[in-house]
Design a protein around this nucleic acid. Structure first.
Length: 555
RNA sequence: UGACCGAUGGUGUAACGGUAACACAACUGUUUUUGGUGCAGUUUUUCAAGGUUCGAAUCCUUGUCGGUCAACCA
């Protein structure tokens, strides 16, 4: 994360700076409150960087709190992945808490409301409650059970807890105002009956608090000073404050920012889950997924994600951030850190007619021109090479710097060669390129005086190893699939994964380690996939290099 | 028909009543044994109309447009 001491503050930092300056707080406490019912994604990254970043710049700390009040959708598997992802992003929480830790306290809070005639047990069905709720432009009507006595409510609520009633048969509701312009203030449901097994409390409870009766109270219990959430919770703030006031507990405050949307992807848990269950992708950590685990498997460095979140900032307006900006930060990081290697993805044979067929040389080549400390490695060279099919053209063109009959190029780290001939197979496809090399043009000791415009990568045939290479493209064909007409699945890019089952790679890559980033020269950044083994190497393309030539061609 | 939130280059975010800026993108040129990187430069901006003020992106009013709210989800 960059030093932001001289940079301007976002609106939440301004609020905090002011709170600190006026002495309202001497330190701040924030929290990151995921529900363990799915994997973390790019949208969460923004919230994580915000909440944890705040307590890096200001005195205080951040808690991790799982908002686990709905046992039917939540699982320990998700808890584990969430913790792993936060750590990988580079953040540490002070306390690991669960809303379910507070179920006893929450129950007592509810009893207090009932005693103060501020909550009642309602026997209405959910349909009836929905009808009585009215609409945004229509006031609601009071439930017939709204006037029950405190004693009866106390009795009924304890029997709800004791499991005497069926799921959905009764609820506990706050007694506020059925004509309130804010729908959430129209006697919101606080507790529902749900005889479900909870991933932490087991079968102890058969009533569970709703979000509005758990989140703010958990914030208060933890003395959270600044409870930051996304804008769809703005209407909840009034209820959040009402409950804290009536319960007379620590006054946490809620602040809202606009969730970050990124183009060419989706970040709704429901949609991501559907992509996985309907097999549009392999798994939650498929490298095409915008999940943190997907980005990690794709080879995105955590620092790139942090820089991205820092750079896009936060605001309160609708937004659609360009994924290209994230890719910029990925390239920026990897350009400095990734070792350069040579790999040929779509091979064609290049034969050097004047290089002895039995001869082999080990050529020293720099590992990273951006990092002198990275040193050199030795790459074997011989008279038969694999080069990229797209680096040859049958007829020369203007501005073409690569191979064509009569043209000369530098073989990276080796010699300058001149194309003298090429062969075609029966189908008319080019099958072999014949070149002559210039012996005195050897890299590092070039006395040929020849200057060539183009340099291409290569792999020696007899020394080459092979690997599967997976090329990824964006998962959707349109910028904002969620906003498009019809089903978002209609906009899936079915060419988002291209598998090259046999690419030729230089032998040094046999020592590649999981998580190690490479630049395949002129092709992009790649990382070893977790499913690789010594029999079969698999490389994922993290991101391409910027390609000005492709841009020129496109015009 | 209501309440709430918002509107600054193509995108995202600053400017806190005093010269509209930063990053990305785009475009030039340059360097380069990666058509990568680096370097130099160019283009492009305050939703509208009124008002307050010496001075408004900023404050006020009205309008327009966009978003959110009617789960026993979070």
């Amino acid at each position: 994360m960059s030093d932001s001491s001289t940079e301007s503050l976002n609106f939440i930092e301004e609020i905090i700076e002011n709170d600190l300056k006026t002495g309202k707080y001497s330190q701040i406490i924030t929290r990151f409150p995921p529900e363990p019912n799915g994997y973390l994604h790019l949208g969460h990254a923004s919230s994580i960087c915000l909440n944890f970043g705040l307590t890096k710049t200001f005195p205080g700390y951040t808690n991790l709190r799982f908002d686990d009040t709905n046992p039917s959708t939540e699982e320990t598997e998700y808890v584990d992945s969430i913790k792993e992802d936060i750590k990988w992003l580079g953040f540490e929480w002070k306390h690991e808490f669960y809303a379910s830790d507070y179920f006893d306290m929450l129950y007592d809070f509810a009893v207090k409301l009932i005693k103060n005639n501020l909550a009642y047990v309602d026997d209405s069905t959910s349909e009836e409650i929905a009808i009585m709720k009215g609409s945004p432009v229509q006031p609601g009507t009071d439930s017939p059970y709204r006037t029950r006595s405190v004693e009866e409510n106390l009795d009924l609520f304890s029997r709800m807890k004791a499991g005497e009633f069926a799921d959905g048969s009764r609820t506990l509701r706050a007694k506020i105002d059925m004509k309130h312009t804010n729908m959430l203030m129209r006697d919101p449901v606080l507790y529902r009956i749900k005889k479900a097994h909870h991933h932490r409390t087991g079968d102890k409870w058969c009533i569970y608090p709703m979000y509005d009766f758990a989140h703010g109270q958990s914030d208060s219990i933890e003395n959270i000073s600044h409870s930051i959430c996304t804008m769809e919770f703005i209407p909840h703030r009034e209820l959040y404050d009402w409950l804290i006031e009536k319960l007379e507990i620590y006054p946490s405050h809620q602040y809202e920012f606009a969730r970050r949307n990124v183009n060419y992807t989706v970040t709704s848990k429901r949609k991501l889950l559907q992509l996985v269950t309907d097999n549009y992708v392999e798994s939650w950590d498929d490298p095409r997924m915008p999940t943190i685990s997907g980005l990690r498997r794709r080879g995105y460095p955590p620092s790139a994600i942090r820089n991205f979140c820092e750079r896009i900032g936060i605001g309160k307006r609708e937004n659609l951030v360009d994924i290209g900006l994230l890719e910029f930060f990925v390239r920026e990081d990897l350009n400095k850190s990734a070792s350069r290697v040579m790999a040929v993805l779509e091979p064609i044979q290049l034969t050097i007619s004047n290089y002895p067929s039995e001869q082999t040389e080990l050529l020293p080549i720099e590992n990273n021109p951006e990092d002198e400390a990275s040193g050199q490695r030795e790459v074997p060279f011989s008279n038969k090479l694999w080069i990229e099919r797209e680096d040859f053209k049958e007829v020369m063109e203007k501005k073409w710097f690569r191979l064509a009959p009569g043209a000369m190029v530098r073989l990276k780290g080796a010699y300058i060669v001149k194309c003298t001939d090429f062969k075609k197979d029966i189908q008319g496809n080019i099958s072999e390129i014949i070149c002559e090399y210039i012996p005195e043009s050897k890299s590092g000791s070039d006395t040929s005086g020849i200057n060539v415009k183009g340099t291409i990568h290569w792999v020696s045939q007899i020394h080459a190893a092979t690997a599967e290479v997976r090329l990824y493209d964006r998962l959707f064909k349109v910028e904002n699939p969620a906003a498009e007409e019809g089903d978002f699945l209609d906009y899936i890019n079915h060419d988002s994964l291209q598998i090259i089952s046999k690419a030729y790679i230089e032998p040094s890559l046999l020592d590649a380690e999981l998580g190690q980033a490479f630049q395949f020269i002129r092709k992009g950044y790649f990382v070893l996939d977790k499913n690789s083994n010594s029999d079969k190497l698999i490389f994922n393309r993290t991101v391409t290099l910027k390609d000005n030539w492709a841009k020129v061609q496109g015009k």
